[in-house]
């Protein structure tokens, strides 16, 4: 079912099949996505691509340090004619929101978006405005070593179902990027593979993918390991456990399976847990080393 869609995606962003699949799984699992990478790696293109593939209306917010919450959620303006305040919705009222370089903005502005993500509604002047459905936020973030950034706190990172890293393309892919057509032009030609109704239906179907008790054991083993291991400051929360299951369901759905198997968990594990774990300072473990620890857990 997803093969043609993935092929289309591959023409735009080649060599990143894994990341694209993860992004789609994240969308299908009704989660939000955080892409962490250096500028110019194709983060925006990926967001654009997803919006096009699922036919979602799309808005982009470029975060800057002088941004205010109103710039995201909208503003009430007094209408002289009606003598009333009229709400002018901000860019967050969109099905797919690309929050570009979210760590450039101050904490107040960041949290405005994160709250909207959590509640899927905006409250202003005692009025509640529901956000569109499906609602999917892709935030991009520069690695925090860069100057002039406000890193997201751990508690807010938890709001993102997945975090992926795009990384540099390999040599062959890079050649095709350098010689090929402009990606933006290619994007214009893409037609949606699914309608919005189909997407919502798929999102519902995914929740019914079977999870066996053996697999729940495996997930709980992972959670337990993170809590008892000496490498981490804090273990994974139950919310992280739920995230693992939902993402694994979506992953199984993409691969046309009716049940979740340990392979699914292993595939989505890094995207789910790496931004949630805080490694102890003295342990100085790289992400690869952490994943090695988790991959060595026995599968029950």
């Amino acid at each position: 079912m997803f093969t043609p869609l993935l092929q289309t995606a591959n023409t735009i962003i080649s060599g990143k099949e894994e990341q694209i699949k993860l992004a789609i799984a994240c969308l299908l699992a009704k989660g939000h996505l955080l892409i962490e990478d250096l500028p110019g790696m194709g983060k925006t293109t990926l967001a654009h691509l997803l919006a096009k593939l699922f036919g979602l209306n799309y808005s982009r917010i470029q975060f800057t340090s002088d941004m205010l919450p109103a710039d995201i959620i909208g503003i009430s303006i007094f209408n002289k004619n009606t003598a009333e305040f009229n709400f002018h919705p901000g860019p967050v009222f969109s099905q797919l929101v690309l929050a570009d370089e979210i760590n450039r903005a101050t904490a107040k502005t960041q949290s405005a978006l994160l709250e909207a993500m959590e509640e899927q509604q905006i409250t202003m002047d005692n009025e509640t405005y529901p956000l569109e459905s499906p609602f999917f936020v892709i935030a991009t973030q520069n690695p925090q070593t860069q100057a002039g950034t406000f890193p997201l706190p751990e508690s807010q990172l938890d709001r993102f179902l997945m975090r992926i890293v795009l990384d540099y393309p390999d040599r062959q892919t890079e050649r095709s990027i350098l010689t090929g057509k402009d990606r933006r032009e290619l994007l214009q030609d893409i037609k949606p593979a699914f309608s919005i109704e189909q997407l919502i239906k798929m999102q519902q179907q995914i929740r019914n993918i079977h999870i066996s008790s053996a697999l729940l054991d495996y997930v709980q083993d992972i959670l337990q390991f993170s809590r008892h291991s000496q490498y981490f400051l804090t273990g994974l929360s139950p919310r992280a456990g739920l995230a693992l299951l939902h993402a694994a369901q979506a992953w199984a759905y993409i691969h046309n399976r009716e049940m979740v198997i340990p392979d699914d968990i292993k595939a989505i594990l890094p995207a789910i847990i790496l931004h949630r774990l805080v490694v102890k300072e003295d342990q100085n473990y790289s992400e690869q080393q952490i994943m090695k620890l988790f991959n060595e857990l026995a599968i029950p």
Binding site: I261, P262, D263, K266, N295, E296, A298, I299
Partner: peptide
């Protein structure tokens, strides 16, 4: 083969 390998692997 280790017990940590998945069935498909």
């Amino acid at each position: 083969i280790k017990l940590s390998d998945t069935p498909y692997q």
